Simulated assay, not measured.
Amino acid sequence: MLLAADATDSPITGFTGKCIDVADANTANGTAVQLYDCNGTGAQRWSSPGDGTLRAFGKCLDIQAAGTTDGTSVWLWDCHGEANQQWVITEAHDIVNPATDRCLDVRGYDNANRTPLQIWPCTGAANQKWFNSKAENPPANDGGIDGRGGDDGGDAPAGFVVSEDQFNAMFPARNPFYTYGGLAAALGAYPGFATSGDDTTKKREAAAFLANAGHETGGLTHVTEQNTANHPHYCDPGQPYGCPAGQSTYYGRGPIQLSWNFNYKAAGDALGIDLLNNPGLVESDASVAWKTALWYWNTQSGPGTMTPHAAMTNNSGFGQTIRSINGALECDGKNPAQVQNRMANYLRFVQVLGTTPGDNLVC
Rank of each mutant, 00 (worst) to 15 (best):
R114K: 14
D359Y: 04
R114L: 13
F177R: 06
A65I: 03
A328C: 06
D78S: 15
D285N: 15
P138Q: 08
A270P: 00
K134I: 07
V362I: 08
G150D: 10
I63L: 06
F131E: 12
V288F: 05
I322N: 13
G327N: 13
D94R: 13
A5R: 12
P172V: 07
K18R: 13
N345V: 07
D285S: 13
G147R: 11
M312T: 05
E283F: 02
V33D: 07
G50R: 14
P255W: 00
F262Y: 15
T100Q: 07
Y296V: 10
G302W: 11
D359S: 15
E283T: 01
N261F: 00
A186K: 01
P157W: 12
E225G: 09
Q34G: 00
Y251L: 04
L220K: 06
C19P: 03
W260E: 06
L347T: 08
T201V: 10
H309Q: 13
G268N: 00
N175S: 10
G14Y: 11
F131S: 13
A213Q: 06
F15P: 07
L210S: 02
L117P: 10
H215G: 05
P176W: 12
D6C: 01
L276V: 09
L361I: 04
A112R: 13
A286P: 14
G147Q: 07
V162P: 01
A135I: 00
